[in-house]
Structure formats: C-alpha cells, structure tokens
C-alpha cells in the first residue's frame, strides 16, 4: 500500500499546487502508516528527487518527451500502470485543470471512488471520509469512499505546503500506454503573469470601475502586491477584461490568501467563486453593498480616490 500523487507540470516546471498535493499525500501516508510516492509525466526541468522535501519517498518518472503534451487518456493509462506497480490504494491530484481531467477517468479505470475538491485530510479513523467543498463554497459535504482504492483531488490552498528535508528515490519508467488521440496544437500561457488559479493575492474589479480605461487602478495595485487580476462577470461580458479573469459561479473559483474586491457588489454568484479566500477586502462606495457581509476588511469610499492611496501605501510599506 502507498499513496500516489500526480505531479503536475507545465513547460517543464512543476506547478506549485503539486507541492501542496505532495505534502497532503505525505500526511495521508503518515496517517495510514504507508509511504507517499509521486508520478511525474513528460519532460521536466526540475530534479524529481527534490520532491523528497515534501515527504515523497519515491518518484516514478515517465520522462519521454512524447508524453510532454497533455492527453488525459494517456496520462490516465500511465498512472493506472504506476498504481499497479506501486500498489497504491490512494491517488491524489490537485483539483486543477489537469487533475480534474484525469481523476474521473482514473476513477472509472480503477473502479475507485472519487472525491473532487477535498478541503481537509481524509478521516481514516472510521472508514474513509473526505471533506469537500459543495454548493460553490457555500457548504461542505463529508463523503465516504466505499471502494478499497480511492481517488482524491485537493482544492488549491486548502492544505498548504509542508517543506522539510529529504530526497526522493527516482524510478524511471517506460509505460506500455499507447500514444493518445488528442493532438495539442498550441499552448498559450501568458508569460511572466501569475495564473489566477495559483495566485496567493488577487485584485479584482467590477462594474463600479466604469470602464476598461480605468483598469490601471486594479493593475497598479496588483503590480505593487505581486498579485493576479480578476473581474466580475459583467466586466468580462462587456469585453472590458478577458474571459479567463472572470471569477464566480460561472467563472473560475479561486481561494487566494487575499482577495481585494474593488467596485464589486458581491452578488451571491460572484461570492460563489471567491468565498474560500482566506482574507477578503472590499472597496465599495455603497455601505449597503452585500460584499461587506462576506468581507474581513473594507473601506466605504470612492474607488477612484481610495485605491491609488492603497497602492501608494503598499509601495511605501513594502519599501
């Protein structure tokens, strides 16, 4: 028995969310008296042995460049082979785009119960119960997995990264899994920007900013904080900002450490995408704006005056 974690990478760099998933897997292994191992697929620039720092004892590497392009069918096949080789009974993914694409396939392939969006360690004291976020962050469900093999996807920022000492043994594997049917033609990722889903700080703007010409209020503050930017749905629907910045019920659900909402009313559908943020700051000129009920800090005032002063204060205090 062991706990196997999928190490997700982009363009040869291991994603930060994988360090968290590895830490989580290591803790489950400790809880159940087994060891945590990783599976890394495709060409990677990082040394897999360093994953030992997050508690992994072993990392299986299918490093052939032909696996570098993502294909959920192929990745599922390789992971299933690794599960057989390692005898893993719990398989952990990040609840990110790739994780959510592979985990359901793997669940069917292994006939293993799946819980997506876990927010805590499984309770293994009595059966195997995973706590997950439901109703778009408005509630939690405690889900028991009835099968011997379990698949879990972990919500970003729900557990945290445990970094210590250690080196993982690296085992190179040559999977039997055939090539896939999906051809990746293009990968377009904004270089140098923090992806919204991985950002620790997010500055977000709503219709209160009046138009795209005023977005420097948001981007200046984000630049000062090293933050990613987001927006409400009407903002992206009006074409003021690109669609991938839209957060909420129908957009991306995020859980940064700090979410700063500027000129956003806080409609329930917007909150659904951001209510798992650790700390929420609201800037709105209307003291009755519903967002204040979900906020930790706030300023009732005109964003056009308040936000530039926050940006100045950040620059000053960060030196």
């Amino acid at each position: 028995m062991s706990v196997l974690v999928f190490i997700d990478q982009h363009d040869g760099e291991i994603k930060k969310s994988s360090f968290e998933a590895a830490s989580y897997a290591a803790k489950i292994a400790e809880q159940t008296g087994t060891q945590a191992e990783g599976i890394l697929i495709g060409k990677c620039n990082n040394d897999p042995a360093t994953l030992g720092k997050y508690g992994l004892k072993k990392v299986y590497v299918a490093g052939d460049d032909k696996y570098s392009a993502f294909d959920d069918g192929v990745y599922t096949g390789i992971i299933a082979e690794t599960v057989a080789q390692s005898g893993a009974d719990t398989i952990v993914f990040s609840n990110n785009f790739n994780g959510k694409a592979i985990a359901p396939r793997l669940s069917v392939k292994l006939k293993a119960g799946l819980v997506t969006g876990a927010v805590a360690l499984p309770d293994t004291s009595n059966r195997f119960v995973v706590r997950k976020s439901v109703f778009s962050g408005k509630a939690f469900a405690n889900v028991s997995v009835k099968t011997a093999t379990k698949v879990i996807t972990l919500n970003g920022n729900a557990y945290g990264v445990n970094e210590g000492e250690g080196t993982a043994e690296v085992v190179n594997i040559t999977p039997a899994t055939a090539e896939g049917r999906v051809k990746v033609k293009e990968v377009n990722v904004l270089k140098g920007e923090v992806p919204l889903s991985e950002a620790e700080i997010v500055v977000s703007g709503g219709r209160g900013l009046k138009g795209p010409e005023n977005w420097n209020l948001v981007t200046d503050l984000a630049a000062a904080l090293g933050a990613a930017t987001a927006c409400s749905r009407p903002v992206s629907d009006s074409g003021w900002r690109p669609h991938h910045e839209h957060v909420g019920q129908t957009g991306l659900a995020i859980a940064p450490n700090l979410y700063i909402a500027i000129g956003i009313s806080g409609a329930i559908q917007h909150l659904a995408g951001v209510n798992r943020s650790k700390v929420i700051v609201v800037i709105n000129k209307d003291p009755e704006a519903p967002f204040f009920k979900a906020a930790d800090y706030g300023i009732v005032g005109d964003a056009f005056e308040v936000v530039p002063r926050i940006t100045e204060a950040v620059k000053k205090l960060k030196g």
Binding site: L114, V115, K138, F140, K146, G298
Partner: peptide, 22 residues
C-alpha cells in the same frame, strides 16, 4: 455508487468586517 455523502455542514460565519475610513 462508489461514494456516499455522510453529512453536510455550513462554513463558520465571518467575524464581521473591520472598516477603515477613506
């Protein structure tokens, strides 16, 4: 089914917002 919901619960309510003046 391979999984089963045992129970639901709601998140703890927020402490209340701390407001600053412009």
């Amino acid at each position: 089914s391979l999984t089963e919901v045992q129970s639901f619960d709601l998140p703890a309510p927020k402490q209340g917002v701390k407001l600053f003046e412009p």
